[in-house]
Every structure is written in structure tokens, then in C-alpha cells.
Computed example of a mutant assay.
Amino acid sequence: MNWYVVDELQLEAKLGLVFFASSMPRLLFMLIGGAIADRVNKATIMLLSDLTKGLLLIAVVALLFVDLFSIAVLIGLSFVFGLLDAFFWPASSSLMPSLVDRDQLTRANSIVQTTQRASTIVGPLLAGLIIGIGSYEIMFACVSVMLLLAAGVDIIIRKHVTIHDGQTDERASIWHNIKDGFRYLKQSPFMIALMLSSVALNLFLSGPMQVGLPIFAHDILDGDEFTYSLLSGTLGVGTLLRALLIGFLNVNRKRGIVALIGLMSLGVFMVSFSLTTVLIVSLIFISLIGFVISIIDVPIISAIQANTESQYIGRIMSLMSFASMGLIPVSYLLTSLMISIGFAIDTILLLSSICLIVVGICVLLFARSIRTVD
């Protein structure tokens, strides 16, 4: 859809509206989605989301055939997709403890992470290939078919999932359930410490890497679009390989410590990356950056899932997503602001990496529970 805005509609200035339309409902309704995930069958929420998206894309194909797929329709579609994601992701991320044993959570989450990492590499390539040799109609039709197939998988999953083992008060309001989730979180310094680590990761990594990487390739390495593609591809391969290794090792002990070590290692590799001016050295360090990212996120997700009571899992996972996703736009804004006032991108990367190291050390020193809980 983003390429359609730039290539077909030639409305590059409107692309920001598309991103905004999809991101805002995710933030605004994520907590509600988590509360609902604790009240109904999570696979049912996933089914409704995938099915609705699949049907909407069939409508998009029809609009493309009659040349009525305008920017206004696309912005509205992005808003609906973002709204559906706000309910889908809390249900999806909190579903795993219902499907696998607790000692297999790390391996299971690694499989999911590996699939997601691979899809971000392969998906755009396939979409570009289909558009290049076919058309937007064929591409959107293919995605629609895949979403409808996913809905079929959701039906199968739904048969094996109960709502929860504990009891969520379904007579209470959604707002009461959300506040109850906050109260539950406040009672667990361990989960607060893990969430702080996830928040730091998104705040100090997302903006400097996403916004800064093409600038780093151009200004620091004196490269072109091929240089940028090499850096991006190497980062993606590194995250994919690490997710595979984490799944193979299936870390079940001291997952909080493992995540913090990964966070501080990430800071060290980012410091090294910010100081490089040679492409081959930059590729080595950015592969290491991608390599350690999965050391952080997979153990954090697995540890939170393993230590959360089943009736709260949807709300806790939605709180985690809300905290981390909410700061990604802030990270973009801060990075852009620092660039606009004259900070060089290598300086921004250096400062961000130091912040990651400091957060990791502080959590490790002051959050005692994170050293003992698995």
C-alpha cells in the first residue's frame, strides 16, 4: 500500500497520513484489545481480524478494477487495519501459554519471531515481484487469499484454546479490567523491570536505526542506495539467525538476566557501529546488532508469559505492546529533532547506545527480582 501511494498515486507527501492512520488506532485501542482478550477466546479475535482484513482486500481489488482506489479510501483502509491490529496483537501474543508447555515458551516464541523476521525480508520481495510481473490487483488478491487461509488456521486453533484458567470478572466494565491489569502489573517488580528494558529498546533503537541508517550510509560511509540495502539486509539476516539460535537453545532459566545482557551487548555493538567509517566493518557490527536483538525480545516475552496468571495475560501483553509501540513514534521524533538541530547521525547512535547500556546496568543493579526469577 505504501508503494502504491508513491508509485501509482504519486502522493509522497500523503504517505505520512497513511502511517498515522494505521498507527494511532493501534495505540488508542491496544489496552482495550488486551482486556477483551482476557474475556473471550483469543483465537476468535484473531479469526475476526484475519477474516475482516481478507474481505476488505477483496473490496480493494474490486476498487482497483474500477479505478476508485483513492488516497481517501486507502487512509480509511489503513485506519481499519490499525484498529483490527489493536485487537489482534494482544490476543496473538498472549495465546502462546495456552498452546505449549511453559518450558517450551522460549522455543515457541522463537519460532514465531523467526517467522516474523523472515516475512519482513521475503514479504516485500515477493510483493515487488508480483507487482512487477503482474499488477496491484493480483498482489492484493494474493494477500487476501493468505489472510483467509490464516482465518482457517484460527478456526483450528480456537478448538484447542480455552478462554483462561482463572476468572476475569466479565460483569465489570472494560475500563475496570484495564485498571485491574495495571494493579496486577504494579505488584510484580520483575515484569516492570522487563517492560522497562523493552521500552528502552524501542526508544533508543527504533529511531536511530530506522531514521538514521540511510543517513549513516550516505553521510558516514559516503555510499549509495546499494550501501543502504546492504546495511538493512545484514541487519535483517542477523536478527533472523539469532532468533533461530534462541529457539534451538530454548533458554528457560534466568531469562531476565539473558535479556539484560543482550541489552547491554546491543549498546556496546551500537557504540562500535557508530565509530566505524568502513563499510565492511559496519556490516560486521550491524550483523552483531541484529544478532543480539532476539536475545532481548524473545526471552522478555517468554519470561512475562511464563510468570503471568492466565486471566491477566492479555492485558499484560497489551500493556507491554502499548509501552513499547507508544515510544516508537517518540523515538522517530527525537531522532529527527536531533538531526534538525545539528547532531550528526554517528553522534546520535553513540548517545543512544550509551543510554541502552546505562538502562541495562541500572535494571540489573536495582531490580533484584530479575536476577532470580526465570
Rank of each mutant, 00 (worst) to 15 (best):
Y4A: 07
D7N: 05
D7E: 06
V18L: 12
F20S: 12
S23M: 12
R26K: 13
M30V: 12
N41S: 14
T44C: 11
I45P: 00
V61W: 14
D67T: 10
S70D: 08
S70G: 06
I75W: 03
G76D: 01
V80E: 10
P90V: 04
S94T: 02
D101Q: 08
N109H: 05
A118C: 12
S119Y: 13
L126R: 02
L126M: 08
I130P: 01
G132W: 14
G134C: 09
F140H: 08
C142L: 15
L149C: 08
R158W: 07
H160A: 04
E170Y: 00
I178C: 02
Y184T: 05
L185C: 15
M191V: 12
V199I: 15
A200Q: 06
L201G: 00
L203S: 07
Q210T: 15
G212T: 04
A217R: 02
D219G: 11
I220L: 12
D222A: 14
G223R: 07
E225N: 13
Y228S: 07
Y228V: 03
L231K: 04
L240A: 09
F248P: 03
R255H: 06
G256A: 14
I257V: 08
L266A: 04
G267E: 11
F269G: 03
S272Y: 10
L275D: 11
V278A: 11
V281F: 10
F291V: 13
I295D: 07
I296V: 14
S302G: 11
S310V: 03
L319S: 07
A323E: 11
S331I: 02
S331K: 03
Y332D: 09
L333H: 09
L334V: 14
T335K: 06
L337Y: 07
C355P: 03
S369I: 06
T372Q: 10
V373E: 14
